[in-house]
Amino acid sequence: MIWENSSYLWFLLLLPVLYALYYWFRLQQRKKREKLFDDRLINQLRKNFWSTGDKVRMFSILAALLFFIIALAGPKIGTEVREIQRSGLNIMVALDLSRSMNAEDVRPSRLDKAKFEVNRLVNRLAGDRIGLIVFSGEAYVQAPITTDYSALRLFLDVANTDQMPVPGSNFQSAMERAIEVFDSVERQNASNVLLFIGDGENHGPDYDETLDQLTERGVTVFTVGIGTTEGGPIPIYDEQGRMTGYHRDRQSNTVTTRLEENTMRRIANSGGGEFYAIRSGSDNIEPFFARLDELERGEFSSQEYADYENRYQILLMIGLILFVIGLFFPDHLNRNSDN
């Protein structure tokens, strides 16, 4: 037996206190009667009083309180064995953290919008495993693939462009990290999905061969392009979060970053997935959620656990019966007096 709210059991200590108060009250009443009346008159006045009934009423009330307190504590008795099966997809999110993701042609910024959409994705998951790769000139596994969505949100929240030691965008490195992650997990007939999020600007080596390796492993690659074709400058902020200017090239010209939609679309087509464009703050990746529902989900784990059944209802019913007895049980009997 276990208790849901065992702290309520401390109220059981009140029962002997209540009984002691009752006993003291009866004793005081008897002493007052003895001072005012003699025994013969007391017996005559209390001729129909039934002391046994009075005791039954008292002990019924105390017993009712006993059962009420125990029911309030929530006793759980016995076990019910349940089997839980966890199934879902293997999803890796590759998020571009190059400084061009700070551009604000998509409000509030490309990166903030990307993180918002990934959070929406996490909120929709139920049993799927998800991980996070961040990349710029190099790629790193920010969060290993997991079903701990709270941890994933934490890693996503702290991701920013300042943490990346190498500038630029290296798509090949991000895809290589994805291959490593998918090779390290047991697939168990679950579909593997890579969600590639960025503005499409690649400054690394050719990634076609690496992309082919992903598809050969059965990974479906979806891409999300964030930005506009008109593009925008890349703001620079100081430590206090105040904008101090824009990034400039060696000729002191303001750098304009644009969405390379064709690049992101080609990656999705080669990876067997779809391309989604986010060109404004109101755009979203809702169609991607629908595609996930079409993919095959595998069984990750099967777990049996014992669950105790709550039995407070029985105790509560017994307590109610005893309480009614305590209220209505007679403590007087009609006795015919001899004439």
Rank of each mutant, 00 (worst) to 15 (best):
V324A: 12
S302G: 03
G272Y: 09
E304M: 14
G326F: 06
R291N: 13
G272A: 09
R297P: 01
E274F: 10
P287K: 03
L320Y: 05
E286M: 05
Y305P: 00
F323Q: 00
R291F: 04
G281A: 12
L292V: 05
N310H: 10
G319A: 01
D283V: 02
V324F: 00
A290I: 09
S280A: 06
E304K: 14
E286C: 00
R311L: 08
E294A: 10
I318E: 09
I278D: 01
Y305H: 12
Y312E: 06
R279Q: 13
F300L: 11
P287H: 06
G271I: 10
D307C: 01
F275Q: 00
F323G: 08
Q313P: 03
R279E: 15
I267G: 07
Q303L: 11
R265T: 05
I278G: 07
S302R: 15
A290H: 11
Q303M: 12
E299D: 14
N284L: 00
Y305I: 06
P287E: 03
R265F: 02
A277M: 14
R279P: 02
M317I: 10
S301E: 14
D307L: 07
G326C: 15
A268S: 11
L315A: 05
Y276S: 02
R297T: 09
A290Q: 15
S282K: 12
S302T: 14
E261N: 02
E294L: 15
L320D: 02
I325M: 06
L320N: 01
N310D: 15
L292E: 03
N269C: 03
G298V: 06
Q313G: 06
A306W: 11
G272V: 08
E274M: 10
G319L: 06
A290D: 15
L327I: 10
E309S: 12
Q313D: 11
E304V: 08
G319I: 00
L316I: 03
N269E: 10
R291Y: 02
E286W: 04
R297D: 07
G298R: 05
E294M: 11
L320M: 14
L315H: 09
G319W: 04
S282L: 03
A306Y: 14
D307I: 01
S280F: 07
T263Q: 13
I267N: 03
I321V: 15
S302M: 13
S302H: 06
D293T: 12
G319N: 00
E261C: 03
L295Q: 11
I314W: 13
S301N: 15
R297I: 01
Y312Q: 07
R311W: 02
S280W: 04
R265M: 07
S282Q: 15
L327H: 04
I267S: 05
Y308A: 12
E261G: 04
G271S: 08
F288Y: 12
N269K: 14
R297Q: 15
R297K: 12
D307K: 11
I314E: 14
F275M: 04
Y305N: 09
F289I: 05
G272N: 06
R311Y: 10
G319R: 10
D283R: 05
M264W: 04
E296L: 04
R279N: 13
I278T: 03
